[in-house]
Every structure is written in structure tokens, then in C-alpha cells.
Design a protein around this nucleic acid. Structure first.
Lengths: 353, 353
DNA sequence: ATGAAAGCGCTAACAG
DNA sequence: CTGTTAGCGCTTTCAT
């Protein structure tokens, strides 16, 4: 009936600082301060205002607040593929530290397309305070363009002048190679991931260094798509190969590869050892369980937003004067040994039986 | 030097409709119309304005637009656990249809906590136009409270008076039971998921109906956590049991259960058949590959936001008059038969060898 | 078809 | 410590 009733189903407009101010007998700005600048207002009046506000069900409107200040309290994480288990824990880690700091995390999926990534940025940039680019497929220059508009940190990649968080791939690879060498393998092949991938570059280089250092025959095949399907293709190509061990760009490929080997009657690890990268969900229950270089997924996400938050804090007071320490956070990886790797001579042992 | 230079590193403020209006020699409102109400402005001037705007790099500011209109072009999906592979494809589906409609999808993770869920709602509700609650752990009444503030659709659950999208669990369960019956199993146990779960209720009831109908001994154990760990516990409890087949609340539990069986020397499917629910990532490469009732994950997400968008469209013109057809979208599931189920007498066959 | 002007709800000087 | 007063950038009647 009356426009003031709150009985019916329509979503009613909420009280504003003006309503609260009127009810409390103070100026709107005082109400504003009690919520946005606690301490800058007499504690008793603040108390009273809070109480009245609570009674009236007042909630500060974030978009109204964002307009004059630019602070939306949202940060975005752009992931190349939400469907890839690699990102699950990263997102979880990012979300946790974002909300702990009072920020809302906006997750955008770009389905492995640099183009979609650019579009996602167009849409999200204007409403977020900063972004983390997780495994971006864009060019360095595109990234820099984005970074010019909002504080940006890249994850799993480095880009000159942009803060980044990466895992220590080189060390991880070195460990993997040593592990295989210790098992007696004298020839290892690296199954490469996507061409433009930063991580692939680092891993391959480290692989090369480690194998030559240990005087092991190090080969490389690929590139392949960083998926199970990619791994399957790799398995085919590898069949005509003489290596007794492979290290693949990531776990997804490794899992696909093992399935491919099974189909071809090649047994893992008896005929061939395989090690993956990342330690994603599933790498423990595939068959055999995968030996892998574990990335600190959760920390990766957490540190990425932490770095971003630091960047935001910096920006707010002295924009230009900032010394820009070219931060790149390097997180340690860890070799997790499971059933997919075994001694080289297992081959002979098995054949002999 | 000058405050107008664009050379240095500071992020400069973008041009507004006023700047464009001045450059084009028209009123700001005309510029506004060309972007928000195409057609309500002379096509030639519109053309000119667009051109000039493009040259100046004008982009309409979404938060400024949202303030007077309330349209933020954001919708949120609240998932109970981003880390659960069940949600990957759902999110992907939701994101795709959201962005096709010009909306940005805000994914919030609440880590299986009803409390965190309420907090996430508090934070996101004011900045989104609508929300989809994916597998909400909140009470119906809490959900209704949220729905009173913003159009809401629930996924994987039904709540009176709230539009919902669910998969046809009952039919799926029926198929699973028949499948097992066809294999000769005469006693099946249902391994229950979380107590409050809507899906668990539906599945259990359908299980009960199907087993009694087929005159099969149907038991139930649980509840267990809907995780691999939960499945592991279930495996222990099941060891002293005489069933030859189990149907578990979901795939994650089924996978955990199979690992538990292996440890106890129980072989799947020779000693016991297991079927899961959902067909998540990994259910095809665990050992043995899991027979499961596949949920249409991608469609689930897509339909959920589609339903939400419909709701939004409705709200915008005739709020109260809407006939509210109590929509509940029922999506079909599909039985995917893989290696984890086998004939009952395999037990005998094996023992005999 | 276009312009003028009044907000949306909040913040931020600037006075007092 | 608190009130006054402009905006933030855009939309939207209401005139013209």
C-alpha cells in the first residue's frame, strides 16, 4: 500500500548516511567518518552512531564509496584456465589473503586465449584496484599496458619491471634430474609444454644444464599442449624413442603420457620412468602415483596477492617516489617421489623374469 | 613538470563524458546517451562522438554508471570449495554465459563454511546484481534473506520460492542401482555424504526406493566428509561389511574409498564394485577408472546464470507483478560405466583360480 | 534529437 | 571534533 511499507516482496532501498545522520542528530560527514576513518570522531558519538546505524540496518555502499575514492576493494586474478587443477589451490590461497585484507577476489577465466585475456582485462580493470595475472598468455608489452593502468603482479612468469611471484623451477628440475640419475638413468628426455610458456623455457634450460653437467644424454621433444591430450601425443612420439626416463612440462601431460604408455604396453616405471611438475590434484591417485616437482600452489596465490597489496599500499601515498625494488618472489619447490620413477635396470630385471 | 604531461609513470585519470562532450561540441548527456542508449541519438552525431571518444581513449566508467543505476554488471557465484574439482566446469560454464551477456562473474570461495558464506555474501551482495549459490551450506532461511536483497538462484539444491538448477539425482541413482543389479549384486550399500546436504538426501531416498523396488538389500553408512579422506574412513568401516557393491555420495569419496580398499587388500571391482557421483576430473584416471553418475557440470553452471539473468531481466521492469513460476531446472545425468564395477560372481571366479 | 540540471551515496578539503 | 560544501562520472527526467 503505502510506499513506506516494508511488507511486500520488492527489494527496498537501504538507509544512507543521511538517514543515519538525521536519526543521530549529526552531520552526514560524521557518519561517514565513523565508518571510513574510525578514530577521527569522538568515541562516544561514534558509538552512538554505530548503534543507531546497526538498528537501522545501515550498510556502507561500496560502489558509492568507490566513486570518489577509486577504492573498490576488489582485486582480480586472471587465470588462464579455471578448469586446470593447477589453479585450484592458487585461487584458494589468493582468496584467503585477499579477504583477510578486506578485499574481494574477482576470479576471471580466459580459457587459454590471449585475446579473451585482453577482453577480460578491459572489463575488469576499471573496477578493480589491482590485478594478478596467473600464467598469462599475453605478450610482455600487453602486460605492461595493463600494468600502466593498475598495479599488477604476474604469477608464474617474469616480466621486466613488473613484480612477480614464481616457483624455483630451475632447482626443482635439477633435483628431478639428479633423482633420475641416482636411479641409474643415463638418458632422459624432456617433454616440452606450450611454446610461449615462460615456465617451459626455464625448465628446459635447467634440464639442459643439469643433464650436461651430469653427463647424461638429454633430449627434448615437443612442444605439446599442456593437457592430458598433449601427453598422449607425446607418448606416441616417445614410443620410438630409446630413453628410459622422461620429465614432462607438467603433471597433466605426465598423466596423459602414462595413459598413452599403458595403451602401448609400455610399463611405468619398469620400462620408463616419468616425472611431472606441479603436484596437482590427482597426481597422487593416478597409476602409478606420479613423482613430481611440487609447486607451492597455495603460497603462490597467497604471495601474489600479498605482493599486490604491498604495491597498492605503496601507490596510495607516494606514487612516483617509490624506489621500485623490482621485486621477484622466488618460492621453493619440492621433489615428491612416488611410484612413477624407478631404477633403470628394472627393465632388465623384468625382462629376465 | 606540468600537470598535464603524460610522459611519466603515474597512472593518469581517464577522459570523462565531459571531456568528450567538449571535444565534440555537444552536451555531456548526449555523450552519455550514445553509449548507454544507442538509438536515442542522431546516428551521425553518434558516429562522430564515438570516433572522438575512441581517439581520446574514452571508456565508460562502470562504477560511476553503477551509482545512479544500480547496474554493476557483476554477478557472483558462491562456491562451497574452489578446491573441489566438482566446481571447475561449473565455474567455466557460468563464466561463459555470464560474459556472453556482458556480465562479469565474481567467484567467491567459502571453504565449506556456512559462516564464511554469510560473510562472503555481506561483502559481495552490495556490489553485484545477482548471485548464484552453488551447493550452499546455509539454511534455507539464510538463503531467503539473501534472496530478498538480490535476485538469487541456487545450484544443486532446492529452496522453496527460490529458482534452482539441479541435476536429476533420482534418475541417476536409479540407473546406478539397476546397473549393479544387472551385474548380479544383491546387496548394495550407500555411503552417505555430509549430513545437511540436499543432494545427499535426494540420493539416499532414490537409493532406498530403487533397492526396495528391485528387492535388493540396501544399506547405508555414514555420514562422511565429501572428500578423499572421508572415503578412506568409509573404506575402513566397510571392511567388516558383507556388501559386494557400494555407491558413494560423490567421486572424491569413491576415489578415497578405492585407495582405502587397496590398502586393505580388497580388490575393486573383483571383491567389491564402486560407483561414484558427478564424474569429476580424475575419475577417469584413478585406478580402476570410476563408474559414475555424471552430472552435466558445464550446463549446470550455464543454466544457473541463465536463470539468474532471466530473473534480472524480469526484475527490471515489473518487480511485483511477476508471476513467479517457481522455476526449478532439472538437468539429466548420465551413467558412465568404467572399470570400478563388475559382476558379482567375479569374487568366486577369482577365489577359485 | 539535444541540452540543462538534479541527483546516486559517499568522501574530502576547509572552516569553525 | 564536527559541520558545510563540493564534487566523483554517469544517468535521467524535463524542457526545448
Amino acid at each position: 500500500m503505502s510506499e513506506d511499507s516494508d511488507g511486500n516482496g520488492a527489494r527496498r532501498s537501504s538507509p544512507t548516511i543521511y538517514d543515519v545522520a538525521a536519526a543521530a542528530g549529526v552531520a552526514p560527514s560524521t557518519v561517514s567518518r565513523t565508518f571510513s576513518r574510525p578514530g577521527r570522531v569522538n568515541s562516544e558519538t561514534a558509538e552512538r552512531i554505530r548503534r543507531i546505524a546497526a538498528e537501522m540496518g545501515y550498510r556502507t555502499n561500496p560502489v558509492a564509496r568507490a566513486l570518489p575514492t577509486g577504492r573498490t576493494s576488489i582485486i582480480a586474478i586472471i587465470v588462464s584456465d579455471v578448469t586446470n587443477p593447477f589453479f585450484f589451490e592458487i585461487i584458494r590461497g589468493a582468496e584467503e589473503t585477499a579477504s583477510a585484507a578486506g578485499y574481494t577476489l574477482l576470479v576471471a577465466d580466459v580459457n587459454e586465449s590471449a585475446d579473451a585475456e585482453r577482453k577480460a582485462l578491459d572489463r575488469t580493470l576499471p573496477l578493480v584496484e589491482g590485478i594478478v595475472l596467473a600464467t598469462s598468455r599475453m605478450s610482455d608489452s600487453s602486460i605492461r599496458v595493463a600494468a600502466k593502468q593498475r598495479p599488477t603482479v604476474v604469477l608464474n612468469r617474469t616480466t621486466t619491471d613488473i613484480p612477480s611471484v614464481v616457483t624455483d623451477n630451475a632447482r626443482g628440475m635439477k633435483r628431478a634430474v639428479h633423482h633420475l640419475a641416482d636411479l641409474g638413468h643415463t638418458s632422459i628426455t624432456y617433454v616440452a609444454g606450450p611454446q610461449g610458456s615462460w615456465a617451459d623455457g626455464v625448465r628446459w634450460r635447467a634440464f639442459y644444464d643439469a643433464t650436461t653437467e651430469l653427463d647424461i644424454r638429454g633430449k627434448r621433444v615437443g612442444p605439446f599442449a599442456p593437457t592430458q591430450a598433449g601427453g598422449l601425443s607425446a607418448a606416441h612420439e616417445l614410443a620410438k624413442d630409446a630413453t628410459s626416463a622422461v620429465i614432462s612440462y607438467n603433471d597433466l601431460m605426465a598423466i596423459g603420457m602414462m595413459r598413452g604408455f599403458v595403451r602401448q604396453g609400455i610399463s611405468v616405471p619398469d620400462d620408463i620412468s616419468v616425472v611431472g611438475f606441479d603436484n596437482i590434484f590427482g597426481s597422487d591417485f593416478c597409476t602409478p602415483p606420479l613423482t613430481t616437482v611440487a609447486a607451492p600452489l597455495h603460497s603462490l596465490g597467497a604471495y601474489a596477492v600479498q605482493t599486490l597489496l604491498a604495491e597498492l599500499a605503496k601507490t596510495s601515498y607516494d606514487r612516483q617516489a617509490a624506489p621500485k625494488p623490482l621485486k621477484v618472489v622466488l618460492l621453493p619447490s619440492q621433489l615428491v617421489v612416488r611410484g612413477s620413477t624407478g631404477p633403470r635396470n628394472a627393465v632388465l630385471a623384468k625382462r629376465a623374469s
